[in-house]
Design a protein around this nucleic acid. Structure first.
Lengths: 96, 96
DNA sequence: CTTAAAAGTCAACGATCGAAGACACTGCGC
DNA sequence: GCGCAGTGTCTTCGATCGTTGACTTTTAAG
């Protein structure tokens, strides 16, 4: 899932937490933050600290991936081949 | 690229900034933060605020993607079909 | 080699954070 | 309807943030 805002991320984290059957208090304990912090993060608070966010995502089994990175001045070099195996492998990991 | 720590992310942001030929001051101005913040972020400071991080990544043309999300208790339900077109489309957006 | 640009570092300050504690509200099983 | 678990919200407080300004060090252009 593409993330652009803190709200996007918070929503995703909440969904994943529920999928795991955890309450906010349980997640907070696992991560080592206060429950209030979890509430704020899930609510999309932009001021939350990056390190805690990363730890929380890890605890939720969510993986952060950065893509993009085109040169500012023009089109990126074209890949000459499409690696279907790699695509499938990634899809398997992302949308099991 | 897989991101686990604030340090990972900061390094990547620095590389991308350099690739674009921008100085820290220029990036700071584009994002609307102080140069000191850019220095701190690139240096991997975990306390930096998520909202500013996301804005910075966007300005650098980096896309944030979240994957993973397996059920905690067992194997996820298997999809019966693989949508190659969707996979390719997503790959095109993520790794152009 | 010289000099300017870029990057690193330090300090002060008002704003905000995260934690702890607690109360209010919601959802659900019995 | 009642009770309990989960979630939302409020307050206080010490710690940290991001900004501004400025000085130092490193890098790169000429």
């Amino acid at each position: 899932m593409r993330i652009r805002t803190a709200k996007d991320l918070g929503l995703l984290a909440r969904e994943q937490r529920k999928r795991r059957g955890w309450g906010q208090a349980e997640l907070a304990e696992r991560v080592g933050v206060s429950r209030q912090w979890v509430v704020a993060f899930e609510g999309g608070k932009p001021g939350v600290e990056l390190g805690l966010v990363l730890r929380t995502l890890h605890e939720l089994g969510l993986e952060l991936e950065i893509g993009g990175g085109e040169q500012s001045g023009g089109a990126p070099a074209l890949e000459s081949a499409v690696d279907l195996d790699a695509l499938l492998e990634r899809a398997r990991r992302t949308d099991p």
